[in-house]
């Protein structure tokens, strides 16, 4: 069998970075929001495979954007 394709290489998949606890509080304070107000990402999401996420952690996503080249987006890890 051929080697498994690493999906992070696919052009549709942007970079996913796990935030530290400290960065998380900075983010929440910056936008004055609670963690529940963030968009979500499933814990079983294939793009998170190598990050080994836990519920409640925040993932920073660096997307390519046609209007501003790169944008940052945040999603909180949820289960189910």
């Amino acid at each position: 069998m051929e080697t498994q394709f690493n999906i992070t290489e696919h052009f549709l998949v942007p970079e996913h970075i796990k935030l530290t606890e400290e960065e998380k509080t900075i983010l929440l304070n910056k936008y004055n929001i609670t963690i529940k107000q963030l968009p979500m990402i499933d814990i079983k999401d294939p793009a998170l495979k190598d990050l080994n996420p836990k519920v409640g952690e925040v993932i920073k996503i660096v997307r390519w954007s046609p209007t501003s080249k790169t944008t940052e987006f945040y999603r909180v890890v949820v289960d189910g």
């Binding site: 998949v13 990402i41 997307r63």
Partner: peptide, 9 residues
Amino acid sequence: ILGVEAARA
């Protein structure tokens, strides 16, 4: 197969 972010794109 590629996740939500890819689905969004």
